[in-house]
Simulated assay, not measured.
Amino acid sequence: MSLFRPKIAPEDIFTPRSATVNPRIYIPRPDLEEELREGLSESQHLVIFGESGNGKSWLYKQVFEESKVSSEVVNLVQASSLGSLGAAFEDKLDRLEEIEKSEYELTKSAGAKPGGVGLDVEGTWKYVRGRKEPFERLLAYVSHPGR
């Protein structure tokens, strides 16, 4: 029998940036959890705000996990540094979205070639992102995770 327990690192207990909540130290807040669940059932957007360290992240992660809600986090401090909310959403989407093929440009030319007449054909794909507003695109991304 050992008199000493293995050393526990702070990140083994306090895990605010983890995708899941540490159930050993999560403090249930039934009133706030219920309000958040009710807000999820309505057709409006939700903003969770408050002082740093109050447990906002764990609150939404706990409720979202229980309710099987997918989400993406956008740090709104970036809206200030990038110049707008749209720019903050664009920044998030840039890290999430795959660029899609949208058009194919075909170039043809004809002319005399050694040994006869010939035709040169060259084509390139043009890659662009969707034309929706950034917030609308982010909502679509969250609605279809892993697409």
Rank of each mutant, 00 (worst) to 15 (best):
Lys7Gly: 00
Asp31Ala: 13
Arg37Phe: 02
Val77Lys: 15
Ser67Pro: 00
Phe64Leu: 04
Gly53Asp: 02
Arg24Tyr: 02
Ala9Pro: 00
Gly118Asp: 02
Asp120Met: 01
Pro114Lys: 07
Arg17Asp: 12
Ile13Thr: 06
Glu98Met: 11
Arg95Asn: 13
Glu42Phe: 09
Ile99Gln: 08
Leu93Thr: 12
Glu42Gln: 14
Arg131Ser: 13
Lys113Gln: 11
Phe49Asp: 08
Ser81Val: 14
Val47Asp: 00
Glu72Lys: 09
Phe89Glu: 10
Tyr127Ala: 04
Glu11Tyr: 08
Ser52Lys: 07
Glu72Ser: 10
Glu66Phe: 01
Ile8Leu: 04
Val47Asn: 00
Leu3Gln: 12
Gly83Phe: 10
Leu119Glu: 07
Thr20Gln: 08
Tyr127Phe: 14
Ser2Leu: 07
Val77Pro: 00
Pro28Lys: 10
Thr124Leu: 09
Ile48Tyr: 02
Glu97Thr: 05
Asp12Cys: 05
Glu98Val: 13
Phe14Tyr: 12
Leu138Gly: 05
Glu90Thr: 14
Leu40Val: 14
Val128Asp: 13
Lys101Pro: 11
Ile99Leu: 13
Asp94Asn: 15
Glu35Met: 14
Leu59Glu: 01
Phe14Gln: 07
Asn54Pro: 00
Gln44Glu: 12
Lys92Asn: 05
Glu105Ala: 10
His144Lys: 13
Glu100Ala: 12
Leu32Ala: 09
Pro10Arg: 10
Val47His: 04
Ser41His: 09
Ile99Met: 12
Glu72Val: 15
Leu59Ala: 04
Gly86Trp: 05
Lys101Ile: 02
Ala110Thr: 15
Ser71Thr: 00
Ile27Tyr: 10
Val117Lys: 09
Phe135His: 08
Pro28Glu: 13
Phe14Asp: 11
Val47Leu: 15
Pro10Trp: 01
Arg17Lys: 06
Lys132Asp: 15
Ser67Thr: 14
Gly53Gln: 01
Ile27Ser: 06
Phe49Lys: 10
Glu34Trp: 01
